[in-house]
Nucleic acid binder design. Structure first.
Length: 900
RNA sequence: AGGCCCGUAGCUCAGUUGGUUAGAGCGCUACCUUGACACGGUAGAGGUCUGGGGUUCGAGUCCCCACGGGCCUACCA
């Protein structure tokens, strides 16, 4: 069979085929009854409105690497995909879309609107899951979930009712964060604080019945229309006499009291503060303490309302301007100062959040937080990187109640009904027929929906069938791991821990790996609106999904990642390198097969399983070495991945495949593959294929497409469907071989030394010359002797003469020395003496410095008495080597300087 | 205001309990279109680890201070 392999790696030609195959064959369908240890992971559900961005790509790459790695190591593996209904975003998207069609969603009515959103969801939602299939994530698509599906909704209602019955959910009127654009209340987390340069307006409030003023300072003059008091500190001598008197609220001509409250900071501003209970959290508290009226002066969309007198109808910022002008005109504006303040912004609409009095549903968090803190403290959940624990603890210990309700139509409707007679509240899993308190049948359901994060908070168990003890729940809960970005530690991770512990009594996952953010080359956050984001699908198309995955793996780290295209080029090059290594194997195999050998004979699974093969009872050195390196790399990858050090694992595979397998191994065995002695050639082929196959499996979690494609070119067991279901290579005991490692290292040093001389001599790369090798170590000599032909080929020599030390002429020609050996080219044209002298001097200087510091250390009695034996021995050995090398280099330099 | 992180080669980053001349990728220099691969090969140049102080036989690694950059939490009008 002649195999056709394209000259260059073309991901576009192989990826779609396998992506489709993996989904169609349902290769990654989990079986809760399957044997083996369990590895389960649920996806951080992406927004149904979204499309895949680089953050998902990183997240999903890490998840998929670990999933594939576990699966290949025989774990009963589940990677559960799904989507989030994303209340605010989705509603915004559909509202905008309707507006474009000239439809006001409010006129449609709730039911029709919801119908439209579902329709939109079916048609255009879930682009991400399509993209996930495209990039070959090894999910179990049969278990895909959606946070707003009927089955998820049932769990949400159940949980809500339980928490209500436990008095952990309650309804209350208080000051909340209101977004005048989204027209809904927001939780504290949805308000982002941004430092902005603003002003402090100093306003004079006339004291009633006098010609005095009290000056108050405010950052938001428009709220003064709702002032119901002025507060001063009770101990403040400046204002003591005024306490209990009244001021005339400018512009409103309303008398309000001067009160005293400990909360006033005498140092700030003027020491007198206007109190607007309906528009400021602090003032709200003061207002409640002093039973002050709460006057709301704004509408829900950020305009001034009828309580705002002549300003009614103005937008809040226009009102501010107008008010300042009017105050100035009346001579009541004392001064304006610059003032930096952290302002609350709605993270969705980017508008300034308005504190507003409102009746909402809340969840009491303290009782939920305590066990969640303890679980992390006790290490029941491992948090990586560990320093995020502090952030978690800090937030959890100061946690505040969670505003659950949202004034939206898209989401889980709050399962609470109010009776028309007395406004009694009935909270139930299903719509009740009558009021639970008075039996009235005039019931109306709460129009609001729940915060999207409330349903996401149940995700690890709701998706597995809880509250039923389903086989999935029993097998896969607690999940093994959660991988997500640190930016949703509070939004999501903390809440899952709290709700998971509360409802299942178990942690929702045993570990959390919080990855970094991918930033632009300038170090900024990528932003769709600024156009600084990159589209991973587009990059995948250009470089290959495998290259993208590899790049993300190799750059993944605790700190944020800067995206540059250099990296992905290098990953693409790596893929191409592997592709071409495969090409070498198969193209050459075609020639070999002409002699009658079948691929089956060289590379059948059972043949590969027994590698490395020996010749005359001995495994050839280079094969022993390669398998030893393979074993080392496998161990490195296993250790690194179990600690989420993706970059280390990826780098290890890269180094092995490119540096060891391609650069040395393939080059070394090339002649053997063509060896006239067919038995020898067959052994070489068998070892080569076995190593290649193992290396493919090692690489598979990182580059699934490329490895799947090439794996299928090798003979596989009957019925074998995918490399993804094959075994991850194991570092077998008989592969480990320390002496092969050190022997090949020595040969590599010899070759490198010879090549370096060639380069200095600027020899024609094809010109074969004679070289000499000398050593005082008998085993090194034998080793070089035994591998002479390989060295000759690597260094393009006509002959490598092995000469006894005493016959080695270091006085002429070009010489390179290490402590262990010397090599020399008996070449008439000498090296550029000036350059060589400079090189020697530099080398001597470095060695000199290193050896002197060792001598000093070793001469120090304190060091000798305190340092571990191992360190001392190591230092002594290195020093001895350095002294020999130093001596050789000095001799050489002396010759050059004295000589010609 | 409190807390956290970072500052290592021209660029982007590794560097696991402190221990032997500090690593990678990209870029750079020289040579090479050699039958797997120019998305390549070979050989090289290039950091003393932001600065200062301390602990230690020994510090890129631990502690303190300063400078520079980033992030999170927080109701200072």
């Amino acid at each position: 069979m002649a195999r056709e392999i394209a000259k260059a790696y073309e991901p576009q030609r192989i990826e779609p085929r396998w992506a489709e195959y993996w989904v169609k064959e349902e290769l990654f369908k989990a079986d809760p009854g399957a044997p083996g240890p369990v590895f389960s992971i649920v996806i951080p559900p992406p927004n149904v409105t979204g499309s895949l961005h680089i953050g998902h790509m990183l997240d999903h790459t890490e998840i998929d690497i670990l999933t594939r790695w576990h699966r290949m190591r025989g774990y009963n593996t589940l990677y559960l995909p799904g989507m989030d209904h994303a209340g605010i975003s989705t509603q915004r998207v559909v509202v905008r879309k309707l507006a474009e069609e000239g439809i006001d969603y409010r006129k449609l009515g709730r039911e029709e609107f919801e119908r439209r959103v579902w329709k939109w969801k079916e048609e255009s939602g879930g682009k991400i899951t399509e993209q996930m299939r495209q990039i070959g994530e090894s999910c179990d698509w049969s278990r895909e979930k959606f946070t707003l599906s009927p089955e998820m909704s049932r769990v949400v209602r159940d949980v809500f009712v339980r928490l209500y019955e436990e008095k952990l959910i309650y309804r209350e009127t208080r000051l909340v964060n209101w977004c005048p654009v989204c027209l809904t209340v927001l939780s504290d987390l949805e308000v982002v604080h941004e430092e902005r340069q603003g002003h402090l307006w100093h306003i004079k409030y006339p004291v009633a019945g006098t010609d005095q003023f009290v000056v108050v300072a405010t950052t938001r003059p428009e709220t003064m229309l709702g002032d119901t008091a002025v507060a001063v500190h009770p101990e403040d001598e400046r204002y003591k006499a005024l306490i209990g008197k009244k001021v005339l609220l400018p512009l409103m001509k309303r008398e309000i009291p001067i009160i005293s409250d400990e909360m006033v900071d005498r140092e700030f501003g003027t020491g007198a503060v206007k109190i607007t209970p309906a528009h400021d959290p602090n003032d709200f508290e003061v207002g409640r303490r002093h039973k002050l009226p709460e006057i709301d002066v704004m509408t829900d969309d950020g305009h001034m309302n009828s309580n705002a007198g002549v300003y009614a109808g103005l937008d809040r910022f226009e009102a501010r301007k107008k008010i300042v002008e009017d105050l100035k005109a009346q001579g009541l504006l004392e001064k304006i100062t610059e003032h930096a303040t952290a302002i609350g912004i709605c993270e969705r609409s980017r508008t300034i959040v308005e504190p507003r009095i409102s009746t909402q549903w809340f969840c009491k968090m303290k009782p939920l937080a305590e066990p969640a803190i303890a679980a992390v403290e006790r290490g029941e959940i491992r948090m990586v990187p560990e320093n995020r624990r502090e952030e978690y603890f800090n937030w959890m210990r100061n946690i505040r109640d969670w505003t659950l309700s949202r004034q939206l139509w898209w989401g889980h409707r709050i399962p609470a009904w109010y009776c028309g007679e007395h406004q009694h509240i009935t909270v139930a899993r299903e719509a009740p027929a009558k009021c639970a308190t008075c039996g009235s049948t005039k019931l109306a359901q709460d129009p609001d929906v729940l915060d999207t994060w409330f349903s996401s908070g149940l995700w690890p168990f709701s998706t597995l069938g809880w509250p039923e003890e389903t086989p999935d729940f029993k097998a896969y809960y607690p999940t093994s791991l959660l991988i997500t970005g640190y930016e949703i530690l509070f939004f999501w991770v903390a809440r899952m821990i709290m709700l998971g512990l509360h409802f299942t009594g178990k942690v929702p996952f045993r570990a959390v790996y919080l990855h970094s953010i991918v930033r632009t080359p300038n170090g900024e956050k990528m932003s769709k609106s600024k156009g600084t984001g990159i589209d991973p699908i587009d990059v995948n198309r250009r470089f290959g999904t495998d290259a993208m995955r590899f790049t993300l793996a190799v750059t993944a780290s605790v700190s944020d990642v800067i995206w540059t295209e250099d990296r992905i080029q290098s990953s693409r090059n790596f893929a191409n390198k592997i592709w071409n290594a495969a090409r070498f194997l198969f193209v050459n195999l075609n020639k070999f097969e002409e002699g009658g050998t079948k691929l089956e004979e060289l590379a059948a699974p059972e043949v590969r399983a027994k590698a490395p093969y020996a010749i005359g009872g001995k495994v050839p050195l280079v094969d022993a070495w390669l398998f030893a390196r393979l074993a080392e790399t496998i161990e490195l990858v296993n250790v690194a991945l179990s600690d989420y050090r993706f970059h280390e694992a990826a780098q290890g595979v890269y180094q092995f495949f490119w540096g060891d397998f391609c650069d040395w191994y393939i080059e070394w065995v090339k002649p053997e593959l063509q060896n006239a002695d067919r038995e020898r050639a067959i052994v070489a082929w068998k070892n080569l294929f076995a190593a290649f196959d193992a290396a493919l499996r090692l690489l598979h979690p990182f580059m699934p497409f490329l490895t799947e494609e090439l794996w299928h070119q090798l003979p596989q067991k009957a019925g074998a469907k995918s490399i993804a279901l094959d075994r991850f290579p194991e570092a077998r005991a008989n592969w480990k071989n320390a002496s092969a490692l050190s022997q090949v290292a020595l040969i590599q040093e010899v070759v490198t030394a010879l090549r370096a001389i060639r380069a200095e001599l600027k020899l024609d790369p094809k010109k074969k010359v004679t070289a000499e090798f000398s050593t005082v170590d008998a085993s090194s000599r034998d080793l070089v002797q035994a591998n002479r032909t390989a060295i000759e080929r690597f260094a393009v020599l006509s002959e490598l003469r092995i000469v006894p030390r005493e016959q080695f002429d270091a006085k002429s020609g070009a010489v390179r020395s290490t402590a262990a050996f010397d090599v020399r080219f008996a070449y008439s044209e000498t090296v550029d003496a000036t350059a060589e002298k400079a090189r020697l001097k530099k080398e001597i200087e470095g060695l000199q410095k290193a050896s002197t510091s060792k001598e000093r250390q070793l001469g120090d009695e304190t060091f000798r008495s305190r340092a571990p034996e191992k360190i001392i021995k190591g230092l002594e050995a290195t020093l001895a080597e350095q002294r020999i090398e130093l001596q050789k280099l000095r001799e050489r330099l002396a010759q050059l300087e004295s000589g010609a």
